[in-house]
Amino acid sequence: MRQSRSATLKMMVDRAPNDRQINKLPPPYLKSSTPYAGSDFRPEVKSACISNRLVSAGLKISKVIILGNVAVGKSCLVNRFCHSVFDQNYKATIGVDFEVERFDILQVPFNLQIWDTAGQERFKCIASSYYRGAHAVVVAFDLTNLYSLSSCPAWLEDALKANTVRPLVFLVGTKRDLLSEAAYKHVEDQATRMARALQAEYWCVSSKCGLNIDTFFQRIAALTFNVSVSQECREIDSSKEIGNGLVTLKKTENPIGGMEKRKRLKNDCCNS
């Protein structure tokens, strides 16, 4: 069996390309503007990946949704990352678009499903159906358009309403290339304040020149991976504990259970 396992590993040489391999947690864009403070993967995640405990559990998939006002550059962001292209012409997204990116994180294959939603109001009823079960929410706004920043809380609220467990939240300002340094500083001030209010991690990117795009998505992938694997570890551990507990508790619990049962039986008899 072990031999076949090692053969399995050997066969998995079709790896993700170099820029999709993550071996240490990428840092946030601003240390001061992130609720996710850990500087590295959690220890249990690391040990699980090194011991290959997870290989048998199948491919990991996480779902990311991208929200934001019309024409802030959501689709450009995704296209820049997934296809390394930037199209100057605006083309409205119809309903929702889908992309998947393969990563190798700590040598474990990991897929990021990216659902790029439409910003137009008329598609909202379609797009909102995709908010369910997201592991990460990216709320995008246009750095040159402060109105788009002000509508971010509404977008996030919609997304959080569809999820009972809070996903990772990112606030990302787009079109950085259109702003001068001074103008950007001013916008960044407001954006980081907004990020703090939304408990989101702040990023600024430019799809046109590719600024921060790769690191941003690597950060998302690594953080979602960290969360999902550590959750999986916890599930494995808790199931172990339950198993052990059953064995040890059996002695003490059984008589009580039995008594109760008998009692109930008696009651049943009485009632009948």
Binding site: K63, V96, W115, C125, I126, S128, S129, Y130, R132, G133, A162, N163, T164, V165
Partner: peptide, 25 residues
Amino acid sequence: TPRPIELHAHDPARYVGDMLAWLHQ
């Protein structure tokens, strides 16, 4: 998590949209 889709059965557009979106996903 997420909540059951039929929770929104009273809103036909939402209900149908959620079901079809689930299939699409």
